[in-house]
């Protein structure tokens, strides 16, 4: 049988049988990614807004740093967080390594620069009349920025979608900090990496197809939110 058709059939079989390993990997992928996206949004969007609306010396350096952080390989982020949460590290006492929480931490670190950057671009491209209009109608500085964010919700939702895309697709952080523990920290991507390692290419590709389907569904949902 042809490689692709085999993968396709395997994917359908796995879905039809609700294979417990696949169900668990899909659940872990989604739950961990959504948590990371949520935390990254809480940190990254305000950071992007703050960077976008304020002027301070060294702002250009801050933006350059943000762009550099966006290019960080996932394994570097993984290694960095690993060194902090390992028993040998400063937060070792919390016993976070090889848990879903560790993956959430790593993926949050990964997604914050992306969300901050997308938010920053949205603000750079914003209509320059928004803030003065809010101010002259009686908004304080905070209320005027709040209005700006509301007016830019398409761009900011795009930031959230980009961040989610990055974390659900990444394998380095999940593998290094989660440890690919079956039924616990095994995600779609680490499962694909493992099956590929075992030479189960068709199974790996099948999991890839399922991951894409899942990502499609989540993105459709986020798009629905964006239209609101």
């Amino acid at each position: 049988m042809d490689f692709f058709t085999e993968s396709f059939h395997t994917a359908l079989d796995l879905i039809a049988a609700r294979d417990p390993d696949v169900v668990s990997a899909v659940t872990v992928s989604i739950v961990v990614s959504l948590w990371s996206t949520l935390f990254a949004a809480l940190a990254g969007i305000p950071a992007g807004v703050a960077l976008g609306v304020s002027e301070f010396p060294g702002k250009r350096w801050a933006v350059t740093l943000l762009n550099t952080l966006m290019a960080l390989p996932t394994v570097v982020v993984g290694l960095f967080v690993y060194s902090i949460i390992s028993r040998q590290g400063p937060l070792g006492g919390m016993g976070l390594l090889f848990t879903p929480s560790a993956m959430v931490i790593g993926q949050t670190v990964l997604a914050v620069p992306i969300m901050a950057n997308f938010t920053l671009s949205a603000i750079k491209g914003a209509d320059p009349r928004i803030i003065p209009t809010a101010l002259t109608l009686g908004a304080g500085p905070f209320a005027s920025v709040r209005r700006l964010v509301i007016e830019l919700r398409f761009g900011i939702m795009a930031a959230v979608i980009a961040g989610f895309g990055r974390v659900i697709a990444e394998v380095g952080v999940a593998m290094m900090l989660g440890g690919n523990i079956r039924g616990y920290t095994r995600t779609m991507t680490t499962a694909i990496a493992m099956e590929t390692g075992k030479g189960e290419f068709a199974l790996g590709l099948a999991l890839g197809l399922i991951l894409m389907t899942v990502a499609l569904i989540v993105n459709l949902f986020l798009n629905f939110l964006q239209q609101r």
């Binding site: 090889f98 440890g179 690919n180 523990i181 079956r182 039924g183 616990y184 920290t185 493992m194």
Partner: peptide, 11 residues
């Protein structure tokens, strides 16, 4: 099952 625990395998 016997010990009501989970063994987390990091391979």
């Amino acid at each position: 099952q016997k010990n009501n625990c989970k063994v987390d395998v990091i391979a």
